[in-house]
Structures are given as structure tokens and as C-alpha cells.
């Protein structure tokens, strides 16, 4: 860390020619002036955040206490919107749907991503090509791909055709509860496996090889190495993937909305509203039924849910980290003598 001695040779504008670190400043005005540029630099974010981040959040809270259709006058109703929410079976249904879809998509997706990460790690030739191929689904328009998958999962679509070709009955992909959730989950898995696989891959490749050398030298089998060395090392990356998948999964909107989008707002979420996610319900209530206050209340409930879930995830995945400290457990007994 270099320090700079006092005066500058070249005539520099203002006093910011002096280093921001460790320099003495005689005039108090000068000291604050020194800080102006960094404050200026970070201010765009805070200004924008104040106007378009913080204010809307506060306004959203305010709105959730009103009954308003966006056009007429606002009517103050206190906590009424939240009370309706608690009694709203469609809302609870949407929460159930969201969690089911989240579970059905996140678990297989993470598992597959892990497997693919291992495979990618073992494959060296054409590495970039593979990575690109796996990542592309994440890049494409969700609207377009939902339209494609919607056609694949239609009653007479490709999926059922393939099933029938192997002698299995077609599935009611878009007209049954399980079918709808499966279709949406498959879309989500398809989109995110590559992304998470690459993240896991990076995590894998960052593991120092000495750990594996040590494991091999100590005679650990593949399985032991896998579970006692690899997975714990990957834990931060897995945690990152789980949390981001959770936050994403609880906010699913596009797949759900586009799949059943039609002229008739009553079809939102599909038959029986089995595809209605929380955010879709929020959008429906706010911009189809024009109940802005109710939509705001749903937004806050979603926030509470995400916070809760993220915390639970964190505790679950990182809490058991404490168990890994005695890592010599993979050694079978005292065979190697210690």
C-alpha cells in the first residue's frame, strides 16, 4: 500500500489530487471535498434506488392498506386486504402450486446439474462447445420457449406422441393438476440445468487437487471421496444454487402466464387454476381485476414467504456444515495407524 507524500507536481484541479487514503488534510472543507467524487460515483445507484426501489416498496405497503382500482379514488381499508388474503382459497392454492412447482423443478434440476457438472469436468475436448450447448436454454426468450413447450405438451402434441409410440398412454399435460405442474417444472428444469451445471463445474474445478491426493493416499474409495470430500467442498456453491433457485422458483410467472394466456381472463392459471403461481395471481388481481391494493398485499406476502424460505434453505444447507469438521471420519477405523 503506497502512500503519497504531500504536494503534487502538476497543477491538478481541486484537492482530489491527494490520495484518499492516509493523507493529512489541513482544511476541513478540503477533507469533505476529497470524498465528493466517490459519493458522486455511488449516488446514481442511491438516487435511482430511492426513486425506483425504496419508494415503490413503501408505496406498496401504503397501497396494501387501500382499496383502489387504479383509476378512481383510493379507499382506506386498513388491514382488510390482508384479512381477505388469509381467507382467499385461490391465494392459498397459488402458494401450494408455487411450492409444488418449486419442489418438482428445483430438486431434479440441482441433481441433474451436479451430474452434468461431473461429466463436464471429465470431458476436456470440445469443452466450450458443450458448455455453450448446455447454457443456451438459459439465454432464450421464456415466452418463445413456453409457446414451444405448450405445443409439445398439448394433448395431441409431441410428448404424448412419443409416449404412445412406446406404448404408454398419453398424459393430460395441460388439463390435470399433476400434468400442468410437471409441464411447467420440465420447462424450468430445461432452462436452468445448464446454468447451475456451469456454476457447479466452476466450484468443482476450484477444489484444490491436494485434497484428492490426500484422499487417494489414505485409501479412500470413490464413494467416500465423493461424499466426504467433494460435497462438503461444494457446499457453498450448492448453497448459492439452492438459494437462487428458491428465489427464482417462488417468482415463476412467464411459463405459467404464457401457457394459458388467452382472451378470456378466466383461464389464467389453466384448468382448475392448477398452474396459478403467486406472482401470476398478483398480476391477475392487480392488472386484470384491477385491484391494486390486493395486489400490493399479495406482493408483501410473497416477500415474507421468500424471506422465510431463503432462511430455511440457508439453515438447512449450511447448518449441517458443523458436522463436517471431524473430516477424518472417512478413515475406516485406525487402519492406517494414527
Amino acid at each position: 500500500m503506497a502512500t503519497v507524500v504531500g504536494a503534487d507536481p502538476a497543477p491538478a484541479a481541486g484537492s482530489d489530487a491527494r490520495t484518499a487514503r492516509g493523507a493529512n488534510n489541513r482544511a476541513p472543507r478540503g477533507r469533505w471535498r476529497r470524498h465528493v467524487p466517490p459519493y458522486l460515483a455511488i449516488s446514481p445507484y442511491y438516487v435511482l434506488f430511492a426513486a425506483f426501489g425504496a419508494f415503490p416498496v413503501g408505496f406498496s405497503l401504503y397501497l396494501s392498506f387501500q382499496d383502489w382500482d387504479g383509476i378512481g379514488d383510493m379507499r382506506f381499508v386498513g388491514l382488510q386486504q390482508y384479512r381477505w388474503l388469509l381467507r382467499d382459497s385461490v391465494f392459498w392454492h397459488s402458494i401450494l402450486n408455487t411450492f409444488e412447482i418449486w419442489f418438482m423443478s428445483t430438486v431434479p434440476m440441482l441433481f441433474l446439474a451436479l451430474v452434468i457438472a461431473f461429466l463436464l469436468n471429465a470431458q476436456v475436448r470440445h469443452a466450450t462447445a458443450y458448455r455453450v450447448a448446455y447454457f443456451i436454454p438459459n439465454v432464450t426468450s421464456m415466452v418463445a420457449m413456453t409457446i414451444v413447450f405448450g405445443s409439445v405438451f398439448a394433448q395431441a402434441g409431441l410428448a404424448n406422441s412419443l409416449l404412445k409410440a412406446i406404448g404408454v398412454d398419453g398424459v393430460n399435460w395441460l388439463t390435470s393438476s399433476l400434468g400442468i405442474k410437471s409441464a411447467i417444472s420440465i420447462m424450468i428444469i430445461w432452462r436452468w440445468v445448464g446454468y447451475n451445471a456451469l456454476i457447479f463445474l466452476a466450484g468443482l474445478q476450484a477444489i484444490p487437487t491436494e485434497l484428492f491426493e490426500a484422499a487417494r493416499v489414505d485409501g479412500a474409495s470413490s464413494r467416500q471421496t465423493l461424499f466426504r470430500v467433494l460435497v462438503p467442498q461444494l457446499r457453498p456453491v450448492i448453497l448459492f444454487a439452492v438459494i437462487t433457485s428458491t428465489i427464482n422458483g417462488l417468482q415463476i410467472f412467464t411459463e405459467s402466464q404464457v401457457l394459458f394466456y388467452s382472451d378470456d381472463p378466466g383461464t389464467t392459471g389453466g384448468p382448475g387454476q392448477e398452474g396459478l403461481t403467486i406472482v401470476l395471481y398478483l398480476w391477475q388481481k392487480a392488472f386484470n381485476d384491477h385491484q391494486f391494493g390486493y395486489g400490493a398485499a399479495i406482493g408483501w406476502s410473497l416477500f415474507a414467504l421468500i424471506a422465510l424460505f431463503a432462511i430455511i434453505n440457508w439453515r438447512l444447507v449450511s447448518g449441517s456444515e458443523r458436522d463436517d469438521r471431524p473430516r477424518i471420519a472417512w478413515r475406516k477405523g485406525a487402519r492406517n495407524g494414527r
Binding site: 415503490p56 408505496f59 397501497l63 417468482q251
Partner: peptide, 9 residues
């Protein structure tokens, strides 16, 4: 903060 919270406001 999730984006959907500020959708309406």
C-alpha cells in the same frame, strides 16, 4: 427485495 413487490407501485 423481490421485484414483484414493486410491480404495482
Amino acid at each position: 427485495i423481490p421485484g414483484q413487490l414493486s410491480l404495482v407501485p
